[in-house]
């Protein structure tokens, strides 16, 4: 499966290439401002910003002449959008059918206990964010989770602890 790359989060952190990038201009570049552009524009915003901050939702809403609550409603409908800054490391826990049967919930609980954040949240130190997903597409390895681009299969609570320990001491 293709790894998801998570670019730099903040507007200010965008690389100062030449000419300087205005992220807003980049977000809407190539779109006409039709209602039907909503999801692609949000996707562009998230790919550039790493998540959908309130200000981005507001600006997208104004640009498309939609209400902020409607844009927020649409964005929250889709699992692909997040509303908190991503962590430096990205943990995805699979709770698809196979992983669910093989103990995916314990993996999620372990992560939540260990990192002190729930699914969809980012740790206070900005180190990790956690996401629960429906299927990572490698059910034979259930239960599965990914840490950044690495896939960890046939997980157990112990193995998961080990991975997080290794990360912490790295």
């Amino acid at each position: 499966m293709a790894a998801v790359t998570r670019p730099q989060p903040e507007l200010d952190d965008l690389p100062a290439s030449s000419p300087p990038i205005d992220p807003w201009a980049q977000i809407v570049q190539g779109f006409d401002g039709n209602r039907s552009d909503l999801v692609p524009v949000l996707q562009r915003a998230q790919s550039l910003l790493g998540y959908l901050p309130p200000d981005a939702v507001r600006r997208v809403a104004r640009w498309l002449r939609l209400s902020e609550s409607e844009v927020f409603g649409v964005a929250t409908f889709y699992a692909q959008f997040r509303f908190t800054p991503p962590g430096r490391h990205h943990v995805r826990i699979c709770l698809g059918t196979a992983c669910h049967v093989k103990g995916g919930v314990q993996m999620l609980e372990t992560i939540q206990r260990r990192l002190g954040v729930g699914a969809g949240e980012t740790t206070a130190d900005g180190e990790y964010d956690v996401e629960r997903v429906a299927c990572l597409g490698c059910c034979a390895l259930a239960p599965v989770l990914t840490l950044d681009e690495a896939i960890h299969g046939q997980m157990s609570v112990l193995k998961l602890q080990g991975i997080l320990d290794a990360e912490a001491s790295a």
Binding site: P54, V57, S69, F72, G73, F77
Partner: peptide, 15 residues
């Protein structure tokens, strides 16, 4: 507006 979907759908303001 409506936010989220399925069981956790709810009515909310933006954010």
């Amino acid at each position: 507006d409506f936010a989220e979907r399925g069981f956790i759908s709810h009515i909310t303001t933006s954010f």
